[in-house]
Design a protein around this nucleic acid. Sequence first.
DNA 1: GAATTTGTACTGACCGGTCAGTTTAAACGG
DNA 2: CCGTTTAAACTGACCGGTCAGTACAAATTC
Lengths: 191, 191
Amino acid sequence: MSARTTATKQKLFDAALKLVGERGAASVTVDEIAAEAGVAKGTIYYNFASKDALVEALLRHGVEILAGRLRSAEESENSLEALVDEMLGFWAEYPAFGQLLVSELWRTPGQWHGTLSLLRDDIVSIVRGQMKRLSDAGRLPEGVEVGTASAALFGTLLVIALDWQVFQPERSRDQVRESVMHLVRGLGQAR
Amino acid sequence: MSARTTATKQKLFDAALKLVGERGAASVTVDEIAAEAGVAKGTIYYNFASKDALVEALLRHGVEILAGRLRSAEESENSLEALVDEMLGFWAEYPAFGQLLVSELWRTPGQWHGTLSLLRDDIVSIVRGQMKRLSDAGRLPEGVEVGTASAALFGTLLVIALDWQVFQPERSRDQVRESVMHLVRGLGQAR
DNA sequence: GAATTTGTACTGACCGGTCAGTTTAAACGG
DNA sequence: CCGTTTAAACTGACCGGTCAGTACAAATTC
């Protein structure tokens, strides 16, 4: 893939992410995405098979970035808190991706349900790995199952980040992070 | 409003909730809703000004039910746990409403953003009321703000319920409630 | 108490616009 | 040159919304 093609796809991802995140995949038109990206409509169909394929690639791309960051956060500082912080940072940086994900992830027979299930697993399994370490160290309250807790933590961070951006934009990222950390620390240190 | 009209609107709510929850408001057609409800297309436009107006009425209707249940749960047993339990029950009963809400609630300039902000406040303020009692009793960890925590709890319950239904349907409602309760009790009893 | 009017709820064929996707011929760029 | 992009016109299915007409029960009239 040439550098030019990569740049074009990046422009398309940026444009699609902005519009689709804000207004939903179904109500954004291909012409709008092309205009936003400053690209001809034909270019979209040269690079992607369909509108759906573009959105799917976008979902994969976003999750890839998030997973990469989580893994590198794990490398540099092996703690649940570091993971949480990194995740919150990601949502702060790509708010539209959060909106896209939240509006598609739990759509039962949606066109991306299969893809999204796998992508969700990518992220949740990273969180689960960290949580398992806590559990093995006996630092998780009894009755809390690792599988459930990691899925819940991922979802919770996602909605907290969205709620923050949409309904409480006056709060600083530090404030939000501290609130979440209080909860996470409580979980990690309980009983 | 005649009994007949009430019945028709109920049929339309049921049909619209099912389809819109599953596939999103934008991609469901008015013809599909009419067919699902066993009603002619014209009937929809006789009862509602537009497709948007139907969805908005649906959102109001659903939140009204939820708020009513939360208030009556508060009356019968004044505790945060009772509230959480009632809420989880509601999402179990109306999963499609959860899907609809989650996919529209954080859509920044969406056509229902204004309405949804108010509806969200209805629910969150009920939760906040309960939480304030905990806080006044000194049973909340310091550093946790009531406003943030109540919004987070609402969102968290929503995503946990959705995740349960979509990705972990094998878990029983009792199991899920117990997991959540562990977290809530931890929060209510911490330091 | 039959005939007629009125109001309400509902019907479904139809219209006009929208939009995903196609096509083409020409330009661009490395 | 060849892979990529452009611009613009075009197609056709689909869909939100309309509207003239139907159904029918409750009032009104004679």
